[in-house]
Every structure is written in C-alpha cells, then in structure tokens.
Design a binder for these strands. Sequence first.
DNA 1: ACAGGCGATGTTAGCGATAACACTGCTCCT
DNA 2: AGGAGCAGTGTTATCGCTAACATCGCCTGT
Lengths: 328, 328
Amino acid sequence: MTDVARLAGVSHQTVSRVLNEHPNVREQTRMRVLAAIAELGYRPNRAARALVTGRSQLIGVVSQNSTLYGPASLLAAFEQAAAESGFAVSVGSVSTLDRQSIVAAVERHLDHRVAGIVVIAPVASTNEALEHMPAGVPIVAIDGDPQRPGALVTVDQVAGGRDATRHLLDAGHRTVWHVSGPDGWFDSAGRIEGWRRTLQEAGAEVPPVMAADWSAAAGYRAGQMLARMPEVTAVFAANDHLALGILRALSERGRRVPDDVSIVGFDDVPEAAYFIPPLTTIRPDFDAVARASLTLLLDQLRSGEPAIVRHTIAPTLVQRDSVAAPSA
Amino acid sequence: MTDVARLAGVSHQTVSRVLNEHPNVREQTRMRVLAAIAELGYRPNRAARALVTGRSQLIGVVSQNSTLYGPASLLAAFEQAAAESGFAVSVGSVSTLDRQSIVAAVERHLDHRVAGIVVIAPVASTNEALEHMPAGVPIVAIDGDPQRPGALVTVDQVAGGRDATRHLLDAGHRTVWHVSGPDGWFDSAGRIEGWRRTLQEAGAEVPPVMAADWSAAAGYRAGQMLARMPEVTAVFAANDHLALGILRALSERGRRVPDDVSIVGFDDVPEAAYFIPPLTTIRPDFDAVARASLTLLLDQLRSGEPAIVRHTIAPTLVQRDSVAAPSA
DNA sequence: ACAGGCGATGTTAGCGATAACACTGCTCCT
DNA sequence: AGGAGCAGTGTTATCGCTAACATCGCCTGT
C-alpha cells in the first residue's frame, strides 16, 4: 500500500480512501491511485482490514449436514449471492443440531470477525441457541421457528403442504396420507400442518401421520405399509427421496403409480423428473431464500440495527405424472 | 489479551506463548494463564493473528457447482476433516471452470491470507490455472489431471471403470456399453479408459461411447437410444443419475432391468438403493479423499515445501439388483 | 478584505496479535 | 569461583490497514 501511495504521489491514507470509495477525493487523484494500483497489481490485505474494522468480508454459515439436498442447494445459492456482493462464505457445519454445538460454531465464526452469520436452523434446539447469542453481528436464521423474533427467512412449508394436498384432493381423492420428515424439524411440522389443515377444511378424514426421516430408506419402509392398505390412493411425501422409496415399495407390491396410488413429493430434486413415474412435487425457491437472507444480512450491516423481519418464500407446484384420479 | 495477562500477573507475550504452546513456559505459569483465560472467557482474535503471521486458520476451497453430488459430498467431508484440525473452510465457487475464473477465485482466497487452498479441478482448464499460481501457499488439487505435477488427490476413476465393466463381463455379457460424463472431465476420461481397456483385454467388442453429461435428463436421452437396440444387454453409466434416466427410458420401452439389460452406475448416491431396481454401483470414498487432501495440505504447511505427491483412492463395487446374466 | 467553512489531503495512533531480542536467575562445567 | 548456556519471562517493534484529527488552500458572504 505504501508502494502504491508513493507511485501515485499521495499518502497511504488517500489510497485507503480510494479503496473505500470515500467521497472526498479529487477525481484526478483517484485516477492516479487507481492507475498505480493496477500497475503494481496491488491487492489489499483483508486480514489487516478485518483487524482494524473488526469485520472481515466473510459471512459465516452454520448448517448441519450439507449433504442433504436442501441445505446443499441453499449453501450453493447463498455462496453465489454473497460472492456477487463481494463477500466470501465460510462454512461451519456441526454434527448435531443441539444448542451447544451451534453456539460453538457461531463463536468460531465470531473469532474470525465475520461480518454476519447465517444459521440454517431447522429444529427447535438450534433456534433456541440463537436466542442467547452475543448480538455483535447480524444473524439471519433460515428455516427457523416461524414464531421467532429476529431476522428469519423461510420457505412457506405450510403453503407447500397445502398445495400438495389440495392438488391430490382436486384430482378426486377422498383423502391424502402423509409420510413426514423427522420429528422436531420445522420443515416437517409446517408441511404436516398445511396437509392437515387442508384436509380438515375440505372435510376429509385425517389419517395418522407416518413419521419418517428424509431418507429413501425410510420412505421405502413407509411405502411397504402403505402398499398393503388398499384404501390408500393418495400420498404426500415430505420430500422427493422419501417419495422415491415409496415408489419402489409400491412397485414391488404391484401397486401402480399413478393408476392405483398418486404421489406428490417436495423439493424438486433434479432427478425427480426421471423417477418412475416422473414425480409431481413442490419446488421451493432456494435461490430466493438465499438472496433474501443475504439482503437481510446486508441491511442489518448497513443500518446497524438488528432486523425483526420475516421473509416467507412461497414454493410452487410442479406437475408431472405421479398424480391421477383414483381408479375406483 | 492484556486483561488476561494482567489477571494472570504475566506479560501479554506469555499469554501468547501459552496459546501457541511454546515449550518454554513453566507449568505453573501456564496453569495461571489458562485459568485467567477461562475466567475471562477470552478468545483470541484470529484476524489479528492472521495479520501478523500472514496466515489465517482458514482453508479455501474452490469448486464449481457444489450441487452435484460429488463436489457437495467432498465439500462436506472436507469441511468436517478441517474442523477437526481447527481450520475453518471458506468456499469460493465459480460459475465456469475456465482458467481466469479459477485464478480469480484463488486470488480472492489469497487476499484473506488462507493457510492453504483446495481446488476441485475436474477439467483441464482448471488444472492449467494451477500451473501458473503464485505458490505462496500450499495448493492441493482434487480430481485433477492424473499427470499433474504437484499435490493431487483423486479417486481412481480407471479402477472404477474397470470394476464396473469387469462385473458386467463376469455376469456373462459379451460386451458393455458406456454412457459417459461430459467431455473434458478427468472423471469421464478415467471411467472411459477403465471401461475400454477392460473390454479390450477381454477381447470384447468396444461399442462407441455415448457422450452425455451428469444429469438424469441426459441419461434418459441416451437410454431411449439404448432401448431400441436389442443387442444392448449391459450398460455402464458414468454416474447414478445418468443410470436413473436410463432406467426410466428402458422401463418406458418395456425393457426390464436386470432381465433384459444390466446396469452399473457410479457414485453410490444414497438413493441408489431405492431405484427400480436397486442399482449396482461404484462407490468412491469421499471421506478418504477429503482426509488425504487435508493431510497433504497440512504436511506442506508444516514442511514449507510444495509436495509432489499423488494420492489415489480406490473405489469399491456395491452390488445390488441391476445386474444379471444376459437372457439369451 | 477577512473570518468562517469546507473540500482535499497528510499525519499520527491504534486494532490485537506474534517475532525478535533483551534480561534475569539458575545450573553446570572447568 | 566465574562464565557459558539455557529456561523463563518481559519489552519493543511490527504486520497493513482505517479512524480521528490536523493542515492547507480556496471559496464564500458581508
């Protein structure tokens, strides 16, 4: 930086001003500095800047298992959005979502003086951890408790559950069964609620929830039970992988989809269009979630005040071939 | 830090020594400092340390599209391994794998004074970018050019292609068709080579490669052609999603798997066991790749010398139900 | 014509750590 | 007994920036 200043014939502080786009720099001087920067190939040391400002150009993301389709897509989308705004993203995944691990992960990020933190908080314990957070930096929760005070961006799970269920009801089914995600996840709860409410509003019978997790294996197990129950004609699976497992169980027992049983999934994984049959599903807009989170974070950064904003992103129904009218 | 020093009745430098595990600190003093740290809840400012040492406790990962199963799993595994060694991981994904983008991504990481960089470099251009890198920090390539000088960790694609092909040949098929990954990827090339060589060694006819990309959609298209060719009894798909697309195309045309056509995939995605039928596939050990990369990086960090080491991780065959003897 | 103000720049003082060197008692050797 | 050597500690300088204040012209209003 000193070199740049010398070459441009100014003080290092003026170079800093140019770098930070301070208003009070003469255009001509600015040009000279910029030229010197280019000639020397100078790049500012972000560690030094982080030290003096107390903030690095880094956003920390805390999430659990980035191998699940949702979190992975979210992370990728967020990283891209952040890069466009000049921020790098540092990931701090945790093996369990309990409060202590989350707090530890957040603190690790804080040690690096991140500018902000995004926590993918799909369960209650994760969420609680956020309550007791040293509020030095902006924090945004994704997928957190819809009731949570503070910055939150979430997919409208209830609307997704509603749309899936309504779609099946509209096709003529008397009721819809549900294979749910794991207990304790807000995603699961929201989808269940949307499903149940829609059934109740339509005056349809509400079958018991078949609790599973997010895996195809659990879907397969649930599917084996479903396949033995002739009264089941419509199933809403809490995600596409679950749906895949159900599809296979059904096919093994000779129950055809959509002829005998209709199915709707959730996520719209890229492969869903190539399941047998192509899966009708609910597609959450991860890009929108990522962008909204970043905006929220950046706003807090600018204003200095913690935001109490909730963004809810509505998912959309993607129709393919796994839904039909009941045969009877 | 000054507070800690005062509380422990020592100088800040001694605190620093305790933190960095310097040998020349009396046990008693060490204890006193540790106690003070605990009492004050002191946490070192990593930005300051990064400034003075020129290295942050951060490892930069450069990759393209972290939504693909391979890169996503790799990233997750690497992040976990790094966390165990006290490093955070900052991701810098890039939309295209051309040289310029890669160089830019690496430089962004360098600005943050990362301790090391991992580049997931599946194509030649990415790899070239690495040649002309300011070698200030250790760099490890994953999936890069097997001929590349420098630190490289890669899945043994050739072995994977060989195992898949041999498995089909052993089942009694006269030859094996191959639906490949995108042009230019080392992964594709390696799998093709393993497949072709095995066929040649067995004296089997080598059918033309059906070039695709990594998507189920491309697999479906290839599958539609394959389905119309009665002489095709065995297919090796370059990844599981491709295989899924092929499976559907085959099923639509009434060709049964494995009765009429046998299929082997690659990746062992968690859902592969729930395809119809469950997919026999090749499973690369992403964990091992991640750990090996980290080790290589850390070794370079310690020794100060660039490594010229190549690690090759052998994948394993996972047998399920998509392979059988040919019917004729 | 001159005080006041403002725009453009320079100077100085940290941010919170580590590195390098200086210092103090010991122990140990000859 | 006297100095070399070393373990344990403190002092000072420094990393590369930005914040805060100081400085210097020059324009403006009366």
